[in-house]
């Protein structure tokens, strides 16, 4: 299958002290596939995602190439001007953030915020925007969408807001969704549901997904390819199943071993009990 995004030799430098934060990252994203990026805090996962979209702070300089293959053209995202980048960010590549509470404006109800995005990017009328919002919230398994849309962000739970954010991204019918730790702040029930929504989203729209997380369980559940990052470097990259079953780099082995220790005792405990 053809690639939709090719990142080659991406390097991010802090211009204030010439400190290189991300070193020569390269990866490819195929159509309708999911790339998982794992690594600990400070490993450069989020910076990499932001650099692709040109969302980094002004003092950070990105070098290398980020080739995005649109409908019938190919562009280098790092060379685009602000306006063309805005169009790509709004309609072709969407980003979903970890902290859903601060991603929404606390002073506006959900309806207005979702509607605004649709009207701005898809040039639809207010009524059409409203109908779209209801439709896509229902897709995200929110049954009382009319009620939810009237609410302000603080009246909704983290899981609910996360779903509103995914619904907004989904309605743009983007080619790529970049999700930065979208399930980290959620409890296990909401986490399972949000992960389920991502799977549905891929099945429904064929959107390619970059899923950033440090939860190996979730990444394993979703990803086809995997990029392991440490201190701004990509230490391992390849097929997710292969890496999980046969990690080459010492750091990947360490990550897998520590997580396995915890999940094993949990699985063992889940199986044992009186009368079973």
């Amino acid at each position: 299958m053809s690639n939709i995004l090719e990142v080659d030799n991406l390097t991010v430098t802090d211009m204030r002290d010439q400190d290189e934060i991300v070193h020569h990252i390269s990866f490819e994203l195929k159509k309708n596939s999911c790339l998982g990026i794992v690594g600990e805090s400070g490993s450069g996962k989020s910076i990499t995602a932001k650099a692709i979209l040109g969302l980094t702070n002004p003092w950070l300089k990105s070098e290398g190439t980020v080739k995005y293959f649109g409908k019938n053209h190919c562009t280098d995202m790092l060379k685009l001007d602000t306006n063309s980048l805005r169009v790509i960010r709004g309609q072709h590549i969407c980003m979903i953030l970890q902290d859903s509470m601060s991603a929404f404006d606390p002073l506006e109800p959900i309806e207005k915020q979702m509607g605004e995005t649709f009207m701005e990017n898809l040039k639809v009328s207010k009524i059409q925007a409203r109908n779209m919002a209801v439709e896509y919230l229902k897709l995200m398994n929110i049954n009382d969408a009319d009620q939810v849309m009237k609410k302000y962000p603080h009246q909704l739970s983290g899981g609910m807001l996360q779903r509103c954010m995914i619904a907004t991204a989904l309605a743009m019918k983007p080619d790529i969704i970049i999700a930065d730790e979208p399930t980290t702040a959620l409890d296990s029930i909401n986490q399972r549901e949000v992960v389920g929504e991502f799977q549905r989203l891929r099945e429904l729209t064929g959107t390619a997904l970059i899923f950033i997380s440090h939860d190996l369980g979730v990444v394993q559940h979703l990803s086809d390819q995997l990029l392991v990052m440490k201190d701004g470097e990509g230490v391992e990259y390849g097929d997710a199943k292969t890496i999980f079953s046969n990690p080459q780099h010492e750091y990947t082995r360490h990550l897998i071993a520590t997580r396995l220790k915890m999940s094993q005792s949990f699985r063992k405990a889940m199986k044992s009990g009186i009368g079973r």
């Binding site: 296990s188 986490q191 992960v195 190996l216 979730v218 999980f244 997580r259 999940s263």
Partner: peptide
């Protein structure tokens, strides 16, 4: 039941 444990 919702926990997604990591496994090999």
């Amino acid at each position: 039941g919702s926990v997604i444990p990591f496994e090999i």
